[in-house]
């Protein structure tokens, strides 16, 4: 009888403990929500249905950022025949996607999406990145060691590296024209150059309203998704499309968690190992060598 009641007590204790740990977990996740981005940060809404692939944005970016002249001029549309990515010489590129069942292709502009919680920033061990309150993700080349972890971490494959430079290779990516424009509240060069009003510059919160309004008003025209609203914690650059996003080259499997959330599980282990290991292994040592100590004491006693 005694045995049984003890077992009951243990069961109850275990259940209670499990409850506490569950509750503890939920209250903790409320206490430390993930960073949703600066409230007044700016962004750009890209409406793929309006883009005609004229590459004016590429040309404007090239001029604004003082990038080297490309091999083929910007009015040469043959470059659209292959899929390109951002590089050290081009911070933004437009790719063409033939959509099955549609009579015209879709064009997708890509550049740094300026995440709310950038993976490049959180992975950098010299703190070379910062997210400005205006929304730009900035990079400081003067402290960069060149480990290229940010390129590993970026889920959008955006940062490029000037490998050919011997003495000062650095990361090259779109900086939202921060130094020359965004800082003063002006839209980036590509937005201003677009002849088709594909790109809308504004407060990120307002852009989201505009985007959802467009979807609501033209449900036949748009897919019911704003790419970048939630992806990897939300991005400053967001997209509307008439075709499913995976058909226009977007990765639709990134999930809504910021990349740092995947790393946090390890980061929480660090302080535990640092504090528990010394005592644990010193204890093991005392246990493992207790016989030696006893032998010594015995022989000393004799």
């Amino acid at each position: 009888m005694n045995e049984l009641s003890r077992r009951k007590f243990l069961k109850g204790g275990l259940a209670g403990g499990a409850m506490v740990s569950l509750l503890g977990k939920s209250s903790k996740s409320e206490a430390a929500p993930s960073f949703g981005g600066y409230p007044d940060s700016m962004g750009v809404l890209v409406d793929l249905t309006r883009c005609v692939g004229c590459r004016s944005c590429e040309a404007a970016c090239n001029k604004e950022q003082g990038l080297p002249a490309p091999d083929l001029p910007f009015d040469d549309m043959s470059v659209l025949e292959e899929k390109r990515r951002t590089s050290e010489g081009a911070y933004t590129v437009v790719n063409k996607y033939e959509i099955p069942g549609k009579d015209h292709p879709l064009y997708r502009k890509m550049q740094c999406n300026h995440c709310n919680e950038p993976a490049c920033l959180t992975s950098c061990f010299v703190n070379a990145y910062r997210k400005t309150p205006e929304g730009a993700v900035m990079y400081d080349p003067t402290v960069c060691v060149g480990c290229r972890t940010c390129m590993i971490a970026c889920p959008f494959y955006v940062p490029a590296y000037s490998y050919s430079s011997v003495l000062n290779p650095v990361i090259k990516k779109c900086i939202f024209c921060y130094e020359t424009r965004l800082k003063f509240g002006r839209p980036p060069a590509c937005v201003e150059a677009c002849p088709k009003e594909v790109l809308t510059f504004g407060k990120r919160t307002n852009l989201l309203k505009i985007a959802h309004d467009r979807i609501r008003n033209y449900p036949d025209k748009y897919v019911d998704q704003v790419y970048g609203e939630k992806e990897v914690g939300g991005t400053a650059w967001m997209y509307l499309s008439s075709a499913p996003f995976e058909e226009v080259g977007f990765d639709t499997h990134l999930g809504n968690d910021p990349i740092i959330n995947y790393v946090k599980e390890f980061l929480t282990v660090v302080p535990m190992v640092l504090t528990i290991w010394p005592a644990l292994f010193a204890g093991f040592h005392l246990l493992a060598t207790r016989k030696d100590v006893q032998n010594k004491e015995n022989s000393a006693g004799k």
Partner: peptide
């Protein structure tokens, strides 16, 4: 050999610290 700017190897230690990064811990 791999680092772009190997002469900056000590930057994560003394010049510009990013203590929340995993690579910081590795270094």
């Amino acid at each position: 050999v791999d680092l772009g700017q190997p002469w900056r190897l000590i930057y994560p230690m003394f010049v510009s610290l990013g203590p929340a990064a995993v690579l910081f811990l590795v270094a």
